[in-house]
Design a protein around this nucleic acid. Structure first.
Lengths: 156, 156
DNA sequence: TGTGAAAAGGCGCAAAC
DNA sequence: GTTTGCGCCTTTTCACA
């Protein structure tokens, strides 16, 4: 898997993580390679699935989304069905941008994005807490965003 | 701000959040509009900063990053300098993909991505916990990724 | 695998309606 | 907002080292 990636591949991926608009020629330039092999590599990286997706990132504030909150959740029953039901519902909530299971004191940690505190309250009371099997849920409203990147760390 | 976005703009942004490869023509098609006005809108959305960035998302597992962890942190001294020092260091760690300040029991919550548990341990002991002013840090290793999207919720 | 050049076609972009 | 069109630039390919 990873071993298929040499230093050049990683440089390409690092650049594309920063700016998805870069053309093969521009990338080739920046890493000291000519266009053709660079293009072939990008192609391969896409084909083989190293590149999962190419997307546009929005400015959260500009599109009117002022609230980010983390919710830690414990389920009451841990049957297989409870988990699946819960997770299926979560995936369907557009306000939930992340949901992970974690070890330790809680079962799940979610990141939720809404317009304001009113809409957050509404989401919490009428959507999230309406789900079955929730034993405990704790909200942590985020005050400031110190760092929020989609760039994964790649060894150079 | 948000009021500048009509339904058509939001449809465009929704599509581009899913797939940044879409051309103006393709988007126009999908929302029942002709190419030119669609292109003009996309341009405006970019110019005015609604679109923050266009990037490539990598497959975390394919690039050899198996561990995702959440770290909650309390600082010991809350002077302005402590915060700035801490945050500056955080931004410099490529392993930290997210860092937010939150209300409540902890001060910060981080999401950290590393190759394996060994490299996570190393990051924790030799980089994160080496920072000054840290009073308490708790790690929560993520087991499974239920949802992880860059798509922000937009009212249709 | 890398280099260089060359073909083809798509897409950004703008003008006219 | 629509339809039309030009021209660039990007992708894509080929012959060759």
């Amino acid at each position: 898997m990873l071993d298929d990636l040499d230093k050049t591949d990683r440089k390409i991926l690092a650049l594309l993580q920063q700016d998805g608009n870069l053309t093969a020629a521009e990338i080739a330039d920046q890493i000291g390679l000519s266009q053709s092999p660079c293009w072939r590599r990008i192609n391969r990286l896409q084909q083989q699935g190293y590149i999962a997706n190419r997307v546009v990132l929005l400015d959260r504030h500009k599109v009117g989304l002022g609230v980010v909150a983390f919710v830690t959740i414990k389920l009451s029953s841990h049957g297989r069905n409870s988990l699946e039901e819960f997770e299926l519902a979560i995936v369907g909530f557009p306000e939930v941008v992340e949901c992970w299971t974690v070890s330790g004191a809680m079962d799940y940690i979610l990141r939720v994005v809404t317009q304001d505190m009113d809409s957050y309250e509404f989401f919490l009371r009428h959507k999230l807490l309406k789900l079955a099997h929730i034993h405990e849920a704790q909200s942590h409203i985020s005050m400031t965003e110190v760092k929020n990147t989609t760039q994964l760390p790649l060894q150079p």
